[in-house]
Design a protein around this nucleic acid. Sequence first.
DNA 1: AATCTTAATTGGAATAATTCTTGATAAGCG
DNA 2: CGCTTATCAAGAATTATTCCAATTAAGATT
Lengths: 151, 151
Amino acid sequence: MATPSNTTPTADETIHGRGFRMTDQRRAVYDVLMGERDHPTAVEVFTRVRSKVPTISLATVYNCLDTLTGCGLVKTVAHEREPARYCPNLEDHAHFFCEACGAVTDLPLRSRKKPEDVWEFPGDFAISHHEVSFSGTCPKCSAKAAKTNKR
Amino acid sequence: MATPSNTTPTADETIHGRGFRMTDQRRAVYDVLMGERDHPTAVEVFTRVRSKVPTISLATVYNCLDTLTGCGLVKTVAHEREPARYCPNLEDHAHFFCEACGAVTDLPLRSRKKPEDVWEFPGDFAISHHEVSFSGTCPKCSAKAAKTNKR
DNA sequence: AATCTTAATTGGAATAATTCTTGATAAGCG
DNA sequence: CGCTTATCAAGAATTATTCCAATTAAGATT
């Protein structure tokens, strides 16, 4: 009677369900992402994971990130030509990239709203996925700028 | 009395206004983009431009695309880890990427709609830019798939 | 518990898009 | 017509990511 079906499956279960093994490396990469809940690049994940699994290689970090995203446990975030970032937030959301400090903020979808309501689809498009990114100045940096301008 | 102010400025005027020169190369790159109105990569622009300006180099194509986007005459389109694409459509719009045929379709913003209506901004964000991309199956490929499944 | 099979990991080499560098060319001004 | 400076061309350099081949480790099987 392990794993009651009315519970969201654990990462282990999800990975096993796809026929993969939950290795130390995969768990470490997953834990790093769940731990900070920011949007690190592969190299940032690599340096964080090294403190737990010092022998892990960058190639393995890329592999782990691939399998984790393949299993739907992690999302990739692409922004302009920058290196890919990884996001543990599985809710439907957009991203805000601050041009001043580089911070990435999750923007939740408003309830009852759909991106399809905003753009026109000329024909029978089957949407499987969407990615939305805003850029500009985040609240912290806006506040700083306002202060500086006042003096 | 050149350039009446009640007319949208030409590409030449815009470029000169920014202190740049309208060279053969820049015009050729611009014409290529305006001519086909699709979403070519830098290399695709390069091969198309070569038929007009056979001595142009890829580096120059990149330079021209940079100045054109800097002047707001062309937009760049980033999608996942793929090479950047360039878009001559200056209207506010999103993009649909067909996973089957690779086609990129412009999706116009519905009138009176704003992307900010769909996502929640937790604080005082100053939006300077947004990029929205959908992926899935385009009408043509959906139709083909339906046909194939029926037989 | 030892063995077997296959997936996963490593480290380095390879790739691909883009940027940088340096010397040559060409615009536009005086 | 010459000067100054932007632009261009060609190739080298960079950077993120993927590939490859050899080793290691999981977990099933005996």
